[in-house]
């Protein structure tokens, strides 16, 4: 069985206010990094498992049920062998 790693990136939707990102942007500006406009924050997860045919569906399930809240967040999955 081939070992794979799914990297799941979860972030707030564009229309949802991201106070953390905003505060980080403000700190960057105060530090003199004025060339960066907006900052959006997020988090990522690494899921390791053996590859199997239904894997993509299983990952989508866990992403919508647990790892992200579809009301406020979106996710993106990257597969690494």
């Amino acid at each position: 069985m081939k070992k794979v790693k799914a990297i799941v990136y979860v972030r707030l939707k564009d229309e949802v206010l991201d106070p953390q990102g905003k505060t980080i942007a403000l700190a960057m500006e105060n530090m003199g990094y004025k060339e960066f406009g907006a900052v959006r924050s997020g988090r990522f997860f690494e899921l390791e498992c053996d590859s199997f045919p239904e894997l993509q569906n299983r990952i989508d399930e866990i992403c919508t049920k647990l790892l992200s809240n579809p009301v406020i967040e979106t996710y993106r999955v990257e597969m690494v062998s």
């Binding site: 707030l12 206010l17 106070p19 953390q20 809240n69």
Partner: peptide, 11 residues
Amino acid sequence: LPGALIRNSHL
């Protein structure tokens, strides 16, 4: 219940 609760706007 519908919706979500996010971080306070002032953090």
